[in-house]
Design a protein around this nucleic acid. Structure first.
Length: 665
DNA sequence: TTAGGATTTG
């Protein structure tokens, strides 16, 4: 019988194993050895759900741990069971059962590197003549239910005061100190993490991995980690943790009440109710037993001679010299001191120039040195960072009257100095993003004169400077031709105010009508101020004789029209813009002969080039397919006016004294 | 192998 369920009664099984079988140790399970008449014995620590392979064959996988080698670095092995045997085993095998496997095929395990188990796995099936003997642990009904619901192994976690030299253990800990992953002098990234747990013992772990993503995703002191398969060694009279094969980690926010969501690079990990409970307990213990307050600060809080952690967004970067690298970052607040600007070659500066200029009053230059340069170079513009242990230093240059504040990330990793990239899903980053989006750039630009532009080293030539200056003064795809003294009014306020009034607004063009642009061109009658033809009272052609009779006749179109009783109509663009600014939406009419588009309405119907230009302009003002966030800003003047008839009264809005920025198309 | 917590000196 290929699968035998053997009950243990008082330590002895009901039936005996075939006498020809001999036990094989885990370390002797190697390719090239003869495993005929051998069996491997282990305890089931993990079983996966029964599945079907592509060809319909049943497949069942269990992990057996060799209790005789439980202190070895590798003490478990994958067993792959095929066909009917898979089905049979899946019905009876439970975690904690002891299994004997014979008649197996030994194959290289493709997952050994990831799961840290034996380099080979055992394949078994009836066809191959395999047999599995299962010694069950006694089962109550309740235990059986639990077992059938759980496919996770029962990991044992060692408290930090029970660690022994030379063992590989699983453990939990609260991060007391950490160095974010940095480039080591060897081949790997390194991260140093000091943990503490309710046994009040500290453990410093040195973790290496060639893949940055495989190191624990610790963002701040107080985070909680779960380490699997960490090796314990004695170093300088103290226990030390170090990565061993198969090391895996989960990291959790240590805040009481925060969602218990593990951060990990592993696609597969075990995390059950019991682990949830452990994290919650550790959070509570940490809250009442540890004082964890990181030196986080906003740029608005910084002082000279300070080491602090900054959570920020990267908007520019540039090489400076061989041992230092420039990061330009902002966090939405303004540093209360004048800050230094590190001179760099314009061609070396990466980042969106317009944005860099827009944010110039809110951006600080951080110079990073030595070992941090390599990581800094690899950072993506726009990414969110936490830069640990930035040093502020007050200094003044020879040509400066007032001192400025410098930001340095010195070389080395003392005190956890380094740079971490945080995902946008991180709660702190979500908060930062929301704050950054709320910052009124128009206000920040007004805080400083344009002369600083020349100081920040962003532009390579006068022409470049002028073009960007022009563009950045506009800061939107439209510009105002007058009334610049007015400040912006939110759409919500405008919608709630009586007409008539005039406003300056900053808004996005969500949509416009007509979408077929040729339909926007109308003939307008200036006499009746409508679209446009009832004002003409045509006279016969002989009426022109009155002009002809003059001594010096004028053949101007207006004179001819007047003589013929024709009211001249003018071509105009008439469009409806739906504008939004986060506080409300408003429909404003554009009535434009030439000024807004800088295209004469009278010429566009006969000029392909102008038609294309208008289409491109509208595409720039309201790029098709973009989300609202990605639409450009428009600065406009609008006036409100009342339209009343017998039935109703309405307020309308019209755009005026506004033109499309020159460099938009 | 690397680092092994405990601020650069630009």
């Amino acid at each position: 019988m290929p699968v035998q369920l053997l009950k243990i009664i008082k330590g002895k099984s009901e039936t005996s194993l075939p006498s020809h079988l001999q036990k094989e140790d885990l370390q002797h399970l190697q390719e090239g050895f003869d495993h005929t008449n051998k069996y491997f014995q282990g305890i089931v620590i993990l079983s996966y759900p029964l599945t079907k392979l592509g060809d319909g064959t049943d497949f069942f996988k269990v992990v057996l741990q060799d209790l005789d080698n439980s202190f070895s670095r590798i003490n478990s092995i994958n067993i792959l069971i095929y066909g009917k045997m898979a089905e049979d085993c899946a019905k009876v095998i439970r975690n904690g059962d002891t299994c004997l496997v014979s008649g197996f095929k030994l194959k290289k395990s493709p997952t050994a590197k990831e799961d840290g188990r034996h380099g080979c796995h055992l394949e078994v099936s009836e066809e191959a003549g395999s047999a599995i003997y299962i010694y069950t642990v006694p089962r109550t009904t309740a235990a059986s239910e639990t077992a059938s619901l759980s496919v996770a192994p029962k990991y044992v976690y060692t408290p930090l005061n029970r660690l022994k030299d030379g063992t590989i253990v699983n453990l939990y800990g609260i991060v007391k100190f950490f160095k974010p992953p940095y480039v080591s002098k060897g081949t790997d990234y390194c991260s140093v993490v000091t943990l503490v747990d309710p046994s009040n013992v500290k453990l410093t772990c040195t973790l290496f991995n060639g893949n940055l993503d495989s190191l624990p995703k610790i963002y701040k002191v107080g985070d909680i980690v779960r380490f699997h398969r960490i090796k314990i060694r004695e170093y300088n009279g103290q226990m030390q943790g170090i990565t061993s094969a198969g090391f895996a980690s989960l990291t959790f926010d240590g805040t009481v009440g925060a969602p218990v969501v593990p951060r990990t690079s592993s696609k597969v990990y075990t995390f059950m109710d019991e682990e949830q409970k452990t994290i919650k307990e550790l959070r509570i213990w940490a809250a009442s037993n540890l004082s964890i307050s990181g030196p986080a600060a906003k740029l608005s809080d910084v002082q000279p001679m300070l080491f602090f952690d900054l959570t920020c967004q990267l908007i520019g970067k540039a090489k400076v010299d061989g041992s230092s690298f420039l990061l330009k970052v902002w966090d939405g607040t303004k540093c209360p001191y004048p800050t230094w600007k590190v001179p760099v070659e314009a061609r070396d500066l990466e980042g969106e120039k317009v944005l860099l200029h827009q944010l110039r009053n809110l951006t600080v230059d951080i110079l990073v040195y030595d070992n941090h340069v390599q990581l800094a170079k690899s950072l993506k513009i726009g990414s969110f960072l936490r830069i640990y242990s930035i040093h502020t230093k007050q200094a003044s240059a020879d040509n400066e009257d007032v001192s400025h504040l410098e930001f340095h990330l010195h070389g080395g990793t003392c005190y956890g100095r380094g740079i971490g990239v945080l995902p946008e899903s991180n709660p702190d980053i979500k908060e930062l993003k929301a704050f950054l989006e709320s910052v009124d750039l128009a206000d920040s630009q007004n805080m400083e004169s344009m002369s600083s532009l020349e100081l920040d080293g962003t532009f390579s030539s006068v022409a470049d400077l002028e073009s960007h200056l022009q563009r950045c003064q506009q800061l939107s795809v439209t510009v105002l031709t007058d009334h610049q003294y007015l400040s912006n009014t939110e759409l919500k306020t405008i919608l709630n105010s009586p007409a008539p009034q005039q406003y300056r607004i900053r808004a996005k063009l969500r949509t416009y009508e007509p979408q077929k642009l040729y339909q926007s061109i109308k003939l307008h009658c200036s006499k009746c101020n409508s679209l446009c033809k009832q004002c003409s009272t045509p006279k016969p052609i002989k009426s022109l004789s009155s002009i002809a009779a003059e001594q010096q006749p004028s053949w101007e179109p207006t004179e001819i029209a007047q003589a013929l009783g024709v009211e001249l109509l003018q071509y105009v663009f008439i469009m409806r813009f739906t504008l939004v600014d986060g506080t409300g939406a408003l429909n404003a009419y554009l009535f434009d002969y030439e000024k807004f588009f800088q295209i004469p309405a009278s010429e566009i119907l006969t000029n392909n080039f102008l038609q294309q230009k208008m289409q491109m302009t509208m595409n720039a003002l309201c790029p098709p397919g973009r989300k609202l966030d990605d639409l450009p800003w428009l600065e406009c003047f609008i006036k409100s006016y009342n339209v009343r008839d017998e039935m109703k009264h309405q307020v309308y809005y019209q755009i005026f004294d506004t033109t499309v920025a020159e460099d938009v198309v």
